[in-house]
């Protein structure tokens, strides 16, 4: 799965943090209700970030978004 899809995964997780506890789990008064749900979201956020940043390991300064094509006086504005 690409980094872009994992990013979408994070947005869906964030949305679920509002919808699920306030909707589906509103009446579940036990540890396996909202507490467990937010625990699982926390773990999935870590997994998603590991996947989103996989390419960081292989990128170095020459591959990174920065491309030093322009002359130093570009900084002058």
């Amino acid at each position: 799965m690409s980094a872009r899809r994992w990013i979408w995964g994070v947005w869906i997780l964030v949305l679920s943090c509002y919808v699920v506890p306030y909707g589906l789990l509103g009446q579940v008064q036990a540890w396996y209700g909202s507490f467990l749900f937010w625990c699982v979201v926390g773990v999935l956020v870590i997994v998603a970030n590991i996947m989103i940043t996989r390419s960081f390991q292989t990128l170095d300064s020459s591959d990174a978004p920065s491309r030093n094509h322009e002359s130093p006086d570009d900084r002058e504005t």
């Binding site: 994070v10 964030v14 943090c17 209700g33 909202s34 507490f35 937010w38 926390g42 970030n49 920065s66």
Partner: peptide, 30 residues
């Protein structure tokens, strides 16, 4: 438990570092 949910949403927000981090880093160096 709502306090836990509040912190977890903040925690998920740190994923913005995965998106914006390399951009900040690149323009900062450049």
């Amino acid at each position: 438990v709502g306090a836990f949910g509040f912190e977890i949403v903040y925690f998920a927000g740190v994923s913005l570092v995965a998106i914006f981090g390399p951009k900040f880093w690149a323009v900062g160096k450049r």
